[in-house]
Every structure is written in structure tokens, then in C-alpha cells.
């Protein structure tokens, strides 16, 4: 179990994480979603021991990271966003070194290396220098190095960034297999569809704060059955607000001179009505985007901006 309580991290005057709390359970994947710079990696780094929290408490499998660092890190596997491999060593040598870093040795280490190589499909290239590997193979080895010591808790920091679809599918399968074995996984990503596909519990983080948390079902319920209608063009915000107020079961999420975001049920059937109201309000619509209920639309609803901005 990974327990984070009121975690804060400041870099001078900048608050990277401003009081984050959550709990990742064994046998499940906890997704930490947010745009770049939201505080995901800082949170991960505080858990893994790379950064010292400014305030709050973090524990891994009951071991406090601040007071019992080595014990907490012994339970933890980390798969960093960037490749962290010795390119001039072979896959087997890399796994051997990282396994030894967690105190593994002898037959146990050999057996585990063999298992992990098979799991990641690298057994045929085990003796080859990593520098000869493809990007996808390196990603899989990067993952393998994080799980070679059979960690009870696993931190995955955007492990699928920049990988091809085939490798992404393979990596997600590997993550799921770890939870099937009882591991507790904390998974950060800014790919909403990926989070929806794999995570059991989710927290949406922005500007160092968790703005929504719960199971996927709970978060979807926060959106209701409403679609998200995003329009760009020229708008008169005050007149638009008056017009939209007359529209039943609709909510104005964002109203600016060039962007308008509406949350409303059954939006596709009511588009002509919406256009008529906006036309009456003196608007000039250039582009319309309709998004069905999703984490993406929830994020937009909560923050007024897209996740990839």
C-alpha cells in the first residue's frame, strides 16, 4: 500500500505539490492524472526518495519514507519516464545489477532474471548489448528493471510516453500482470484513455492539487450523462450567459471572448437549439467540438482547459 497524506513540496517560492493525499491499494492500479507540470512526477519523486517532501507523510507498505527510507524503498519498484539503463551492458547484466541493488543474489536472482526476461519477451536478446535494442525493447527492459526484485509497490511514471502502440499494449499488459500478482501500482499519465483503460482508482491533479478523486465510475458520475460542447469563434460572454440560462439542463463551464464550453445532456440532438441561442446572442461560431462523457471532459469541466495544454 502507498499512503500519501497532505504531501507538500516547494522549490523556493514555487509550490510544486500543495497538499496531496491519496492511497493506492494492493492488487490495484491507482492512476494519477494531470497535464505536464501538474505535480505528478514531483509526487512520484517524493515517494521514491528522490525528493524530500517539504511537509506531509508518505509511507510504502507501512514504512515511512522519511524515517525508514531504505525499508520503504526495498518494497518499491520504480519505472521512470526516461530510460534508466546501461546501454553498453546486456539486458541480463542490467537486470543483474538492479536486482543486486535490492539485495538479490545467487539462484534467486538468476531465476528472477529468467522470469522477467520471459515476461517482457526479451529472453532471445538477453545477452545482447542494450544499445542494439529498439526503442520498444528498451522500454520493456526499463520496466523489467523496475520489477526484477518483485516489489510489493510499483511506481510507474508515464511509462508509455513516446512508445509505439504495440509496445504500449504490451506494457499495459505487464502492469496489469503485476497487480494480478498482488502488487500495488501507482501510475501517472496524461493519456486519459490509457487511464480509463487500466486504472481502478484515479486522482486528477492540477497545479499541485488533487481536483477530483475516486473510482472511474465515481468520476464519470461527476460528469453525469452530460456531453461537453466546446465552441470557438467570437462571443459576447454576458449575452451568451443570458441565452444559455434559458437552456434546460445546461451548464456554462467557460465563457470567454473566443472560447465557449458548455456541459449539457444529449448535446448532439440539441445542437441546432444551442446554435440558435448563440446566434441570437450575436456570436460568430467557427468550430464546434462535441465530447461524450469521459475523464477528458471531466478534466475540462473541472479546470476549463484540455489535459494536453
Amino acid at each position: 500500500m502507498i499512503h500519501v497524506e497532505e504531501l507538500q513540496k516547494q522549490f523556493g517560492d514555487l509550490t510544486a505539490v500543495g497538499g496531496v493525499s491519496f492511497e493506492a491499494r494492493p492488487g490495484s492500479i491507482f492512476g494519477l492524472l494531470g497535464p505536464n507540470g501538474a505535480g505528478k512526477s514531483t509526487t512520484i519523486n517524493c515517494i521514491s526518495g528522490l525528493l524530500k517532501p517539504s511537509a506531509g507523510r508518505v509511507s510504502v507498505m507501512g514504512h515511512d519514507v522519511a524515517t525508514d527510507g531504505p525499508a520503504s524503498r526495498r518494497q518499491l519498484g520504480v519505472v521512470p519516464q526516461e530510460l534508466a539503463l546501461y546501454e553498453d551492458l546486456s539486458a541480463r547484466e542490467n537486470l543483474g545489477y538492479w536486482g543486486a541493488a535490492y539485495g538479490m543474489r545467487g539462484d534467486r536472482l538468476k531465476r528472477r532474471i529468467k522470469e522477467v526476461l520471459e515476461l517482457t519477451g526479451l529472453q532471445d536478446r538477453a545477452k545482447e548489448a542494450v544499445k542494439n535494442f529498439s526503442g520498444g525493447m528498451k522500454r520493456r527492459l526499463n520496466f523489467a528493471c523496475g520489477i526484477v526484485h518483485e516489489p510489493k509497490a510499483l511506481l510507474l511514471d508515464e511509462p508509455t510516453v513516446g512508445v509505439d502502440p504495440q509496445t504500449r499494449v504490451r506494457l499495459l499488459e505487464l502492469v496489469r500482470s503485476e497487480t494480478d500478482n498482488g502488487a500495488c501500482v501507482l501510475y501517472t499519465t496524461h493519456y486519459m484513455e490509457e487511464a480509463e483503460a487500466i486504472c481502478d482508482d484515479l486522482a486528477i491533479i492540477d497545479h499541485g492539487l488533487i481536483i477530483a478523486a475516486g473510482t472511474l465510475k465515481e468520476l464519470r458520475a461527476m460528469m453525469g450523462e452530460r456531453d461537453l460542447l466546446r465552441l470557438t469563434g467570437t462571443f459576447e460572454p454576458n449575452q451568451v450567459m443570458e441565452g444559455i440560462a434559458r437552456l434546460e439542463d445546461a451548464e456554462l463551464v467557460q465563457a470567454e471572448a473566443d472560447t465557449l464550453t458548455l456541459s449539457l445532456a444529449n448535446a448532439s440532438a440539441r445542437l441546432s437549439t444551442v446554435f440558435q441561442i448563440l446566434n441570437d446572442a450575436g456570436s460568430d461560431i467557427r468550430e464546434t467540438t462535441l465530447t461524450q462523457p469521459s475523464l477528458e471532459s471531466l478534466f475540462i469541466k473541472l479546470t476549463g482547459k484540455e489535459l494536453r495544454e
Binding site: R73, V78, P80, W98, A101
Partner: peptide, 10 residues
């Protein structure tokens, strides 16, 4: 990044 990885080990 291997140095960072070392820091995350015991």
C-alpha cells in the same frame, strides 16, 4: 538516469 535509479533503491 541510472544514478537517479540508484537513489530509488535501498
Amino acid at each position: 538516469m541510472t544514478l537517479r535509479r540508484v537513489v530509488t533503491t535501498p
